[in-house]
Simulated scan of single mutants.
Amino acid sequence: MLPYYDLPHLVEDDEIDSQQHVHNLRYLQWTLWAAGKHSAAMGWDSKQAAADGLGWVVRKHEITYRRAAFAGDHLVIRTWVSDMDRYASIRKTLICRPADQAVLARVDTRWVYVNLRAHKVVEIPDSVRSLMIQSKTPPMPWTDGTKT
C-alpha cells in the first residue's frame, strides 16, 4: 500500500457555481471524501469506532486555492498523513489536474481524536496510530507513473 491515496474525480456540471467554475466548498468536500477513503483503505473502521464512541474530528482546514476547475476536468485528489502527535494528525491534500500538470489547491487539515460521547479530545491509541501511515510529500500524480 502506498503511503498516500489518490481519489480520481470527474467534475460534474452541478459542481459549477455562478462564476462558471467549481465552487470552493467542493474542494473541501473532495478533501473529506479522499480522507475517508484513505483511512478506510488503511484499515480504519469508522463504523466500529463510532460504535465505540471514538472518531476523528476536524479542528482546522487551511486551503490555498491556486487555479480553477471546470466541468469535465479529470482531477486527482491526493492525500496523505504527514504528521501525528499525541492528540492530532495533520493530513495534507493536493487537488491536481494532470492534463495540464496543475495544482488547483493545497489543503492542510488538523484532525483530532475524540471521545464522541464525552465530546473531549483524547490521546490517539497506538493501535490507531499504527494504521495511520505518516509520509513526506509524495510526487505529483503526473511524475510517479500512477494511472489517473
Rank of each mutant, 00 (worst) to 15 (best):
residue 5 Y to D: 01
residue 5 Y to H: 15
residue 8 P to L: 02
residue 11 V to S: 08
residue 12 E to I: 09
residue 13 D to M: 12
residue 14 D to C: 15
residue 15 E to N: 12
residue 16 I to Q: 12
residue 16 I to T: 12
residue 16 I to C: 14
residue 17 D to R: 08
residue 21 H to L: 12
residue 22 V to F: 08
residue 22 V to N: 00
residue 23 H to A: 11
residue 23 H to M: 10
residue 24 N to A: 13
residue 25 L to F: 08
residue 28 L to R: 08
residue 30 W to M: 09
residue 31 T to N: 04
residue 32 L to T: 14
residue 33 W to S: 11
residue 33 W to K: 14
residue 35 A to Y: 00
residue 36 G to E: 07
residue 36 G to M: 02
residue 38 H to M: 14
residue 38 H to A: 14
residue 42 M to L: 15
residue 43 G to H: 11
residue 44 W to F: 15
residue 44 W to Y: 15
residue 45 D to F: 10
residue 45 D to W: 09
residue 47 K to Q: 13
residue 50 A to L: 13
residue 51 A to S: 12
residue 51 A to D: 06
residue 52 D to W: 06
residue 52 D to Q: 14
residue 52 D to H: 11
residue 53 G to H: 10
residue 53 G to I: 02
residue 55 G to H: 05
residue 58 V to S: 07
residue 59 R to V: 12
residue 60 K to F: 09
residue 63 I to P: 00
residue 64 T to L: 06
residue 65 Y to E: 01
residue 66 R to P: 00
residue 67 R to A: 14
residue 67 R to K: 15
residue 70 F to Q: 04
residue 70 F to M: 07
residue 72 G to F: 08
residue 73 D to C: 08
residue 73 D to N: 11
residue 74 H to S: 10
residue 75 L to C: 07
residue 76 V to K: 02
residue 77 I to F: 03
residue 78 R to H: 07
residue 78 R to S: 03
residue 80 W to A: 03
residue 80 W to Y: 12
residue 82 S to M: 06
residue 83 D to M: 03
residue 84 M to W: 00
residue 85 D to L: 02
residue 86 R to A: 09
residue 87 Y to F: 13
residue 88 A to H: 05
residue 88 A to V: 07
residue 90 I to E: 06
residue 92 K to I: 09
residue 92 K to N: 15
residue 93 T to K: 08
residue 93 T to V: 15
residue 94 L to R: 08
residue 97 R to E: 01
residue 97 R to C: 05
residue 97 R to N: 01
residue 98 P to K: 04
residue 98 P to G: 09
residue 99 A to E: 08
residue 103 V to L: 11
residue 104 L to D: 00
residue 104 L to K: 06
residue 106 R to P: 00
residue 106 R to E: 06
residue 107 V to H: 03
residue 110 R to F: 11
residue 112 V to E: 01
residue 114 V to I: 09
residue 117 R to S: 05
residue 117 R to N: 11
residue 117 R to F: 07
residue 119 H to F: 07
residue 120 K to N: 09
residue 120 K to E: 12
residue 121 V to S: 14
residue 127 S to C: 05
